[in-house]
């Protein structure tokens, strides 16, 4: 009986491993139910803002209040998505993370970094702004709160993401299409 019990457990475990190692279809991001979604064509006519984060990056976590504030300010005019580029991060742990930080923004997993490449982002947290035509008009830091990994300002003094969203909404020109972000390298996740 003991042996049977072990075997049963082992089989279950093996099934789980198989499920996890199922190959991803190339070039797709997924929502937390596993459904492939392209956030750039999901809703048309609005600018799209992608926010790249990971659960274990303290800088991206410290940005949660700022990200939520921006999505509340612009949520009616632009579509926001949280993007998790860590292929090892499960849908369940992402769900917990969203709840823990009280995010009300839909989340996508980007295990093959299709959105990372499309958005030309390098770290978490980093933002990408696509205008209503689907053109990437800004990618980079949210603001200049962090000067380097070890040093932050008491408060940010420039607000590049907000400027980028304004530019996407009103077609105003942007001083720069990018501003160097500070955080955890996405390339470490390959």
């Amino acid at each position: 009986m003991r042996r049977d019990g072990f075997w049963f457990f082992f089989v279950l475990f093996e099934g789980l491993v198989l499920l996890l190692s199922m190959p991803y279809s190339q070039g797709q991001a997924f929502d937390l139910s596993g459904k492939p979604i392209n956030p750039l064509t999901y809703s048309s006519g609005k600018p799209v803002i992608l926010l790249f984060v990971r659960t274990d990056c303290p800088i991206s976590n410290r940005y949660a209040p700022k990200i939520k504030q921006l999505s509340e300010t612009y949520g009616a005019k632009a579509t926001f998505w949280m993007i998790y580029p860590d292929k090892d991060e499960s849908a369940a742990s992402i769900g917990n993370h969203l709840q823990e930080y009280a995010y009300k923004i839909p989340a996508l997993r980007d295990p093959t970094h299709v959105l990372v490449k499309r958005s030309q982002v390098q770290v978490t947290p980093e933002a990408a702004v696509f205008n209503a035509k689907g053109e990437l008009i800004y990618h980079g830091r949210i603001d200049n709160w962090y000067d380097s990994i070890g040093r932050s300002r008491p408060v940010a003094t420039s607000h590049e993401l907000a400027d980028g969203i304004e530019a996407a909404l009103h077609g105003t020109p942007l001083a720069s299409k990018t501003a160097s972000p500070v955080g955890c390298y996405i390339s470490d996740l390959q």
């Binding site: 860590d86 990994i149 070890g150 955890c184 390298y185 470490d188």
Partner: peptide, 26 residues
């Protein structure tokens, strides 16, 4: 520490970051 560094997997997931923060002596 915000993430563990006790295995190869841990270190690999932060490799470039580790190189940078140690180089800058942060």
């Amino acid at each position: 520490g915000p993430f563990p560094l006790v295995s190869y997997g841990d270190a690999k997931k932060h490799a470039r970051q580790i190189a940078e923060v140690t180089r800058l002596r942060i």
